[in-house]
Design a protein around this nucleic acid. Structure first.
Lengths: 170, 170
DNA sequence: CTAACTATACTTAGTTG
DNA sequence: GCAACTAAGTATAGTTA
């Protein structure tokens, strides 16, 4: 009558044990997540594939993006950079940071999109799929427009820049 | 000298307490997730927004998306979707919300990128501009790739979907 | 603030019906 | 197979350095 072993971190070989453990631990995990969320005001989500019955569990937090948006409100501001000309290194660091943030945010975006797709899949044929396709098409449009806009701005800025270069050219 | 309270499921009012708790619980959560993963051979992932320093903590190995999607593709979906029908409303709501989130996040992304570019530009000639332009080109490339990928996935999903519809059509 | 500690709350492996 | 139970094992709130 062994009462309990220390968890050795390796796969449960016994299938039914594994299954039971999965159920228990999954429950615990979800609980912890929801606790974290309410105790510390954290937005989080988790996706857990169920290897036993080909389904999955998702712990979603509806307003989880909101905080991201708020966070990014205080980004490096344009005007500040003006008196930073001699602080090249610092500014460069900041840019690096911003890039990192952009990268992370993008990964996050990706994740959400996938979650969305997964959600759609969960519904099988019961949702009208056309709207989803339309949504995506809209997204594409917006994205290309954004890209164009960016390019235009860059060109403009580049112009200003070389102008400035000329002006400032030591 | 209260030794430990039962967790009352409400937000820590004290900010430093909250912060400490966040660190601790996040760590614990990640550990649990990794344990679940190795003990029961489960694919899972979690995203936790850090409300204190604008960053993310993600638990997956990088290629989790791939495995999730791959696994998901090969799932016998028909049975699962059957007992999802009664959850249709809930799931639909969630999808709607997620869409909204995607849109917002994407807009935010754009804004940040533009801000970043502007920032870089404002540095005048002191930074080398070519790299920045290259960065932007990279960004565009990545974006288009994302779009393509999304479209492909959607098409694939649509195919599966209508197939199911035919199968299940009733 | 962060790190370490430790007593206690919580989780869960093993067991039972 | 699942649910309940229970004690061993863990996580972590409160505390200290």
């Amino acid at each position: 009558m062994t009462r309990r072993n220390k968890v050795k971190l390796e796969l449960f070989q016994n299938m039914s044990e594994r299954k039971v453990s999965f159920r228990k631990r999954k429950t615990g995990l979800m609980k912890k997540l929801s606790e974290l969320s309410t105790l510390c005001d954290v937005d989080a989500c988790a996706i857990i594939l169920n290897p036993f019955n080909s389904s999955f569990d998702v712990w979603p937090s509806p307003p989880w993006v909101q905080s991201v948006l708020t966070k990014f409100r205080h980004m490096p501001e344009v005007e500040e950079t003006k008196h930073m000309y001699n602080l090249e290194t610092i500014t460069q660091e900041r840019i690096q940071k911003t890039r990192e943030q952009v990268r992370k945010l993008r990964m996050e975006n990706r994740r959400i999109e996938i979650e969305q797709i997964i959600n759609q899949c969960m519904l099988g044929g019961s949702l009208d799929f056309k709207n989803d396709l339309n949504l995506l098409n809209d997204m594409d449009l917006v994205l290309s427009q954004n890209i164009q806009e960016l390019n235009i701005r860059i060109k403009a800025l580049k112009g200003e820049n070389s102008h400035e270069n000329t002006l400032m050219g030591s």
